Every structure is written in structure tokens, then in C-alpha cells.
Computed example of a mutant assay.
Amino acid sequence: MNGTSKRLGRGFCWQELTVGAFGRTVTSADINAFVGLAGMIEILFTNAEYRRNNSAIKGEPSPGALVFLIAEALSLNATSQEAGLAFRGLSSLDIKGPVQAGDTLEVEIEILDIRQESKGSRGLVRTQNIVRNQHGREVMIYKPLRLMMGRPE
């Protein structure tokens, strides 16, 4: 492998980032596993009969935290494999609408700010991540800050 090729699956350095969209369907198994692991035993997530008869939310809703985690996985797998060093925080996270089992999510990543870090070739990257369902409706918008590796000097 020469110095100009990329290994399959490796992400970008911060200097190589561009806008992109990536998708994944949320399944009942995803929701059940997350609810069980997180201990979110709220009736909205654990009782289909309650949802059918008493809830304002019908279908099988996903917790917002799961939507965030799926969006982060899509974003990181597409852009930061082996190049991401640290999640530095969020300046905002807005849930815009519900996500149900069977919805397919896409994340559009807009680069808001890129600046070189004081140490070596590392960089700080602030993005706006817009999560949309299969109908193009925004379901979440958040702005993470990441520390990323740069190209070797």
C-alpha cells in the first residue's frame, strides 16, 4: 500500500472533510435493546397496548437518546474512522420530531468551523448534524465539537 491510498473504512483527517449524508433504519430490536440497556422502562417504550389505547404517540417510538446515538454512529463511521480523537461536547441538541421503528435516518453534516489545534497536526471541528427521516423531515439537529487527527506533516 503506497502513501497515497486509503485503507477501506478509514475516515478522513479534519482537512479532508466535506458535506455528506448517510442512512440507517431504526428497528424494533434497536429500540428494545437500547431501552433495556439504558433502563428506560417508561411505559411509552415498554407497553404496546398502552401506546395503542392511551398514548398520544402511536406506533413504536424511539427515545431521543437512541436517535442521537444512531446519528453519531453514522457520522463517525462515515467521517472519523481512525481519525477521531475526542468528542469535546455539544453546543446544542434540538429534537424536532418523533422517530418510529421502521424510520430510516440520514445525517447531513455541515462543517461550521475548522481550526488547527495548538498541538501538532490535530484540529478542532464543529459541525451541524441534521438528522432527517425517510420523508426528508428534520427529526434532530445538533452541533458537536470533535478533536481530529490531521494529515502527517
Rank of each mutant, 00 (worst) to 15 (best):
T46N: 08
Q100I: 08
I130A: 00
I141V: 11
P152G: 07
F68G: 08
A101L: 15
Y142N: 00
N53E: 15
S121V: 01
R88L: 11
I70V: 06
S80Q: 10
S5R: 10
L44K: 12
N129W: 07
G39F: 10
G9L: 10
S91R: 06
N32M: 08
D30R: 02
G11R: 02
T46W: 05
N129G: 01
S5E: 14
E110D: 07
P61Y: 05
G64C: 07
A101P: 13
G123H: 02
E82K: 05
F22N: 08
E49P: 06
L69V: 08
P63Y: 13
D94V: 15
N54M: 15
A101G: 14
T104C: 03
A48V: 03
N129R: 03
A101E: 10
N2W: 11
G11E: 03
R24A: 05
A65C: 12
P98Q: 13
S80M: 09
I41R: 09
G123V: 06
T25S: 01
S80D: 03
E117C: 02
A21Q: 09
R7K: 15
G11A: 07
I31V: 12
L44I: 15
V26F: 07
L66M: 12
T127A: 10
G123M: 03
I130T: 10
N129D: 11
R146K: 00
G150V: 00
A33V: 13
L37V: 03
L76W: 15
G3R: 08
S118A: 02
I43K: 13
S28P: 04
F68K: 02
E138H: 04
L37P: 01
T127K: 02
T79G: 06
R115D: 00
N2D: 08
F34R: 01
S5W: 11
G9W: 08
G123S: 02
T25D: 01
E16M: 07
F22W: 08
S118H: 15
M40C: 13
S91T: 03
N53A: 07
Q15A: 01
G84F: 13
I57R: 14
L69M: 06
I43W: 03
T79I: 02
E16S: 05
L90F: 15
K119R: 14
